[in-house]
Design a protein around this nucleic acid. Structure first.
Lengths: 218, 218
DNA sequence: GTCTATAACGTGATAGAC
DNA sequence: GTCTATCACGTTATAGAC
């Protein structure tokens, strides 16, 4: 498990390296293909081809498809929660400001990488607990300044008295769901990719307003 | 394509038949397994086992895994949109009432079959357009009384002036997203299945209130 | 480290007896 | 219609030359 952690770190450091090593090329390609097709539907040959390397090298560097997948998965989940941690634990910003920052961050991230949420949700069905522990998701979210601020606001009667889970589901639902459902949405309303993207940009401003209303509702 | 439609209908009529035929047993089992694992990860042998039949019979009745999948897929999407149509096109109910009914319907459906949304969203990446046409999803939603009421309310200045897509995403996001993300949510907050279900029951009342606030927000 | 060749296995599908 | 046996193929993984 330590080994896996090390290799996972390696992938994250892969930014702007002059000439990517074979190992790095494989990981980059694996990330793309796994995210697009999911574990079961991707063949190691697809990854090798996308990486422009001989497919035997994949096993040389990572032993198995499964191991390679675990590394990619771990990093993707890490990415999903890491910046959330920064935003959620900033003691300087208000509850409302945090919502705004979360919406902004995720809409930017998912506009660039729309496959992330469906990938994470799908693969979490096969073992969420392990992953959540490895990235410390529970601590990041539930022990955050954000939650404390929420509970304080409830105590002061400023917002509706409800468990914070509802609030989490609301913010993520409003922000992340459109990306998950984008094939359906685009089919329903005849949206081009560009039009969809600008809708999401609009939501950066709208979601904080909406959430503010939701919080006060009785 | 006519043939496929007929077989798809057959599956829907499968309720409370005294002794299910082999064909029906296969479809029921296929539905369960496909919904749980997705197309790529399920083996026809899994389906045969779940149905309690010889795995050669699967090909005898349905020619291929692919054909069988299409039937299941079509019915699942149909189910997802059918009752929506009834609710959305009722001229007797108000906009607010419709939101309430949609939330109620989906929370009931997804509590019983939590795998449906992730299944639909995943498989729609490989061809949403065809499916949407086959079930007439675009007409059901975009030409509905619901949309007309929405546009009327905008014209009268009763609600915020925004394209109805945002509204659709909001209602579905608040209602459906929690089921998609349930493995993550349960991991974050340490919820049992029962606790999760009762949270969703709570949302039946909350979502209509929240949506009302969202609509008015400026 | 990288390649070719091939092993080992699983899976979808069919032939043919009953 | 149902079963057993088997084929044909694709896929992961490895052995071994370079």
């Amino acid at each position: 498990m330590v080994k896996l952690e090390q290799m996972a770190k390696k992938e994250l450091k892969m930014t702007a390296v002059p000439d990517p090593s074979t190992e790095e090329k494989i990981m980059a390609a694996a990330r793309t293909v796994f995210l697009e097709k999911g574990f079961a539907a991707t063949r190691t040959r697809d990854i090798a081809e996308a990486a422009g390397i001989n497919h035997a090298l994949l096993n040389y560097y990572f032993r198995s498809k499964e191991k390679l997948f675990q590394i990619i998965m771990l990093n993707t989940v890490k990415q999903f929660f890491s910046s959330l941690s920064v935003v959620f634990n900033n003691p300087e910003t208000s509850l409302e400001k945090k919502v705004e920052e979360v919406a902004n961050y995720y809409i930017n991230l998912l506009t660039a990488h729309p496959d992330i949420p469906l990938f994470i949700m799908t693969e979490m069905k096969k073992g969420a607990k392990d992953l959540m522990n490895q990235v410390g998701a529970k601590e990041i979210v539930m022990k955050s300044v954000f939650i404390k601020q929420y509970q304080q606001a409830v105590k002061e009667g400023k917002i509706q008295k409800l468990p914070p889970v509802h609030f989490l589901m609301n913010v993520l639902g409003l922000t992340v769901f459109p990306f998950i459902a984008s094939p359906m949405i685009k089919g329903l309303v005849d949206l081009s990719d560009t039009e969809f993207t600008s809708l999401m940009q609009e939501r950066k401003k709208l979601i904080p307003i909406w959430v503010k209303m939701i919080l006060k509702a009785t």
